[in-house]
Design a protein around this nucleic acid. Structure first.
Lengths: 115, 115
DNA sequence: CCCTTGAGCAACTTTTCGGTTGCATATCTG
DNA sequence: CAGATATGCAACCGAAAAGTTGCTCAAGGG
């Protein structure tokens, strides 16, 4: 019987989970959307337009940063955050693999039914 | 100045965040992997091979279920959970759009630099 | 019918998370 | 230099999450 993943989650699984968890918050998703538009932005800029505190936004940015989705560069007195596409691409590929696997399962099922 | 998303997060954003949050846990990611292999499995089966309690696994399954990633069917005295690909596909597409947008940004930047 | 197995429910504990407030620090600008 | 601007840091708080334990119930098997 094929059970649940043996144990000791693989490093990749942990990474995917981290990235997903980082995206699992509407505020952070908004930040990602804003930054994926291209231009790096300062914390103050990103705080404008939300009802949240600068510190709250900062925390969210740090979460995104430690997931690798974003990185910051200090420039003068402001720190500018920029989008980093790699982790989202990896996640996308992972989801694509899951989809593909699922489609194959459906295919086998179908051919089984159809004889 | 293009600020952060105006407010009132879109329904889609909320949905993506929910799906991501559901995937943002290693245990749940393991469950998804196990179920995406095809065969629906009972809670007891899914509990085997993990050091966690049946109730803990049950909770995780309910989280996945309310995110639409999985659905359960009661069969006799056991309830079997099956994978549901739609939410992950949507998420994948969303990530694809983000990637694409980012690539366009890089393209514009490049053509700007090259004159 | 008795016993085992698979599951649901509820209460409770322990972390973790999302946010805030208050204060200190560095950088511009006039 | 004085004042405003942009951050950083740390403590604190309430709520939600993750997991456990104990008990009950339903369904199969001898």
């Amino acid at each position: 019987m094929s059970r649940l993943a043996p144990e000791g989650g693989s490093a990749k699984r942990r990474q995917h989970a981290t990235v997903c968890a980082a995206l699992g918050d509407e505020t952070r998703l908004s930040l990602v959307t804003a930054l994926s538009a291209g231009e790096p932005r300062s914390i103050a800029q990103l705080t404008g337009g939300s009802r949240m505190t600068r510190q709250a936004i900062t925390k969210h940015l740090r979460v995104l940063e430690s997931a690798g989705i974003v990185h910051s560069v200090r420039s003068g007195r402001e720190s500018r955050f920029a989008f980093d596409p790699a982790p989202l691409n990896e996640l996308k590929d992972y989801l694509a693999r899951v989809s593909e696997q699922w489609d194959q399962v459906l295919g086998r099922l179908k051919s089984l039914v159809e004889g």
